[in-house]
Computed example of a mutant assay.
Amino acid sequence: MDLYSVCDWYDAAALLTEDERLVLGRLRDFLETTAKPLVGEYWERGEFPDEIARPLIGLDLMEPAEATANRTRPARGIYHGFRIFELARTDASIATFYTAQAGLFRTAIRVGASEEQKKEWMPKVIDFTLKGVFSLTEPEHGSDIAGGLATTARRDGDAWVIDGAKRWIGGASTADVLAVFARDVADGQVKAFLVPRGAPGVTLTKIHRKTALRMMQNAHITLDGVRVTEADRLHNVNSFRDVAAMLRAMRSDVAWIATGIQAGAFEAALRYVTEREQFGRQLGGFQLVQEKLARMLGNLTSSLALVVRLTEQQEKGVYRDQDSALAKMQTSLLMRETVALAREVVGGNGITLDADVARFHADAEAVYSYEGTHEINALIVGRALTGQSAFTK
Rank of each mutant, 00 (worst) to 15 (best):
E44W: 01
R45W: 05
G46S: 09
F48T: 03
D50Y: 04
D50P: 03
D50I: 05
E51A: 14
E51M: 00
R54N: 14
R54Y: 05
I57L: 13
G58L: 13
G58V: 09
L59G: 03
D60G: 07
D60P: 08
P64R: 02
P64H: 04
P64W: 00
E66N: 04
E66D: 15
E66A: 15
T68Y: 02
N70I: 02
N70M: 08
A75Y: 10
R76K: 13
G77E: 00
I78G: 02
H80Q: 14
G81K: 09
G81V: 07
F82P: 06
R83D: 08
R83P: 14
I84S: 06
I84K: 14
F85T: 09
L87V: 10
A88L: 13
D91G: 08
Y98T: 04
T99G: 04
A100Y: 00
A102P: 06
A102N: 04
A102M: 08
G103R: 00
F105D: 02
A108L: 13
I109W: 03
I109T: 03
R110I: 00
G112A: 10
A113H: 01
A113D: 00
S114C: 10
S114Y: 00
E116D: 12
K118P: 00
E120T: 11
E120M: 13
E120N: 02
W121Y: 11
W121Q: 03
P123N: 11
K124V: 03
I126W: 13
D127Y: 08
D127C: 10
D127T: 08
F128A: 11
L130D: 06
K131N: 09
G132M: 08
G132C: 12
V133H: 00
V133N: 00
V133K: 03
L136K: 05
L136H: 01
L136R: 02
T137I: 12
P139D: 05
E140C: 02
E140K: 15
H141S: 14
G142A: 09
S143D: 11
D144L: 06
D144R: 12
I145P: 00
A146Q: 09
G148R: 05
L149N: 12
T151G: 01
A153H: 10
R154P: 04
R154N: 12
R154H: 05
R155A: 15
D156A: 13
A159I: 03
A159F: 07
A159Y: 08
V161Y: 01
V161Q: 01
K166F: 05
K166S: 04
W168A: 08
I169R: 11
I169L: 05
I169S: 08
G170S: 15
G171P: 14
G171H: 14
A172N: 12
A172W: 04
T174N: 13
A175S: 15
F181E: 02
A182F: 05
R183D: 02
R183Q: 13
A186P: 03
A186D: 15
A186G: 10
A186Q: 10
D187W: 10
D187E: 07
